[in-house]
Design a protein around this nucleic acid. Sequence first.
DNA 1: GTCAATTGTTCAGTTATCGTGAACAGATGA
DNA 2: TCATCTGTTCACGATAACTGAACAATTGAC
Lengths: 304, 304
Amino acid sequence: MIDLRRLRLLREVHVRGTLHAAAEALGYTPSAVSQQLSVLEREAGAPLLERVGRKVRLTEAGQVLVVHADALLEGVDAAAAEVAAVSAGRLAGVVRVAAFQSAFLRIVAPTVAALAEQHPAIRVEATEREVEQGVPELRLHRLDVVVGDEYEDQPRAIHPELQREVALRERITIVLPAGHPLAAARRIRLADLADLPWAACQPGTGHHEMHLRACRQIGGFEPDIRYTSDDFLILLEMVRTTGAGALLPDLVVGFDPPGVVARPFASGGVGREVFLLTRRSRTPTVQAVVDGLVVAAGAAAPAR
Amino acid sequence: MIDLRRLRLLREVHVRGTLHAAAEALGYTPSAVSQQLSVLEREAGAPLLERVGRKVRLTEAGQVLVVHADALLEGVDAAAAEVAAVSAGRLAGVVRVAAFQSAFLRIVAPTVAALAEQHPAIRVEATEREVEQGVPELRLHRLDVVVGDEYEDQPRAIHPELQREVALRERITIVLPAGHPLAAARRIRLADLADLPWAACQPGTGHHEMHLRACRQIGGFEPDIRYTSDDFLILLEMVRTTGAGALLPDLVVGFDPPGVVARPFASGGVGREVFLLTRRSRTPTVQAVVDGLVVAAGAAAPAR
DNA sequence: GTCAATTGTTCAGTTATCGTGAACAGATGA
DNA sequence: TCATCTGTTCACGATAACTGAACAATTGAC
């Protein structure tokens, strides 16, 4: 097992160039530094230093190790800081969140704002990412929370070392341009829209599948999906300007975007679930962020 | 300074639930474990364990610390493994590379293939990302190499702790649909294309700026940029199908895509530089990847 | 309920590790 | 050439780590 204090020694030698300087900087004698570095070489199983003139230089193995040393020493500092903060009663640390677009806008963003007041020592880092991309990074500890979605009847497999938590259940609505003849109706029969061009996400996505299935099973027609983009805001804009229709979750139309109307299905309909994924072991800090996301999701869900 | 062996003890206690089991697993007596954990609590400045019945459980601070412990212990293992590999003469370790689209396709992908043979113990992880997004992650040690581009007369500022290396200098060519009247010419005067619609990257990008500047200064006209996308392959497709023109780097048209022709400027012209960014301290492993990228960039540059 | 078994803790004593300081060898530059 | 810098080695004292026994608290079988 490589010892951290010895790694700190190695880093200091790397930075200062001589054992004497490193020894002085850390309050040791050169003798101690020399001996400890010998031990480190035994631990690492490779020579780390080579003498050049009367100075000393790191070997390749030494350079490799010193890079890791930097990361590790930074890591223990972060650990100590977080423990100190947590034991002082406040939550702290970095939590990395990934979310798909609409959840990012309507759930993650308000959560960040709320947590900034509630737990100022928590630093939330957020990225837009689809679930498929996020899950491997979650398992590699590069993300802490992934916000994903799942349409009715399209259950996703979940990895056993991950934990899933429902943030929001919502209905899919039919979105039409404000000027459409049926826009005034309170509810809309999908079958009446068989001739409409549609805007949906790219083929292969859950949304595209849901769109096809809904039109076939509820509407009884094969939809003319003419515009595709994975950006829901683009889909909304296509509806507004081109006269196409779209099937969008409440979360997206919750903006009440101008120029379009959102109406529920006259019968049946489709649901969507927004969920949070984390590793099974949650720190209190991650838990606080998860709690914040659940609250924000509840607030984002429009009353129906 | 928190000691790693004590962290390993803590983790073992967390996993196994009792000091005895942890002691047995690691070859200590329960007495030693108890004493060392007391020391760890002093080091961490917070109680980490609480007795529940005759077993023991981690406090909040303990749980926080054990998460960091996992990451740190994994880190030392990775460090030891990489040092062992390097000192055995072969390069090893994970190198994370980010590149913009065309560099990803034409430089990073071939590099990955070449390195897989040359240094099988190097694991290259690649992501598509623009320079602006990549630089902060580079500084946070979440990326090791960023491949970026820079158009003539638009120098980017570079952070002092980063190192920049030119991979490729190339010329911008005028790309026209194969059926265009001027497609047969060997060289093309930009001024002759004043009435053409154009496809370019989004406003605000270096490419868009370059496009405007070239048309104004070399062609003497204000271009009608009708189609914008940051995806060069989409731009090419727009040229092929809609009859628009584009100003694209050799790297993009090096594909010799069907249905379009690429011609140099009749006079003057614009250059682009593809460069690599790394932190100043490169391990031999990172250096090997950088070398591989430079070679691949050279191979990707079409002869002129 | 009682008692053996199991848990964590504490204490003294031993062992291993870490540090100092002096003595040494090689390299540098006045 | 020689004083001065470098890193290394050695013996020895100081510190830390570990063991083993004794102890208190809890649990579960009888």
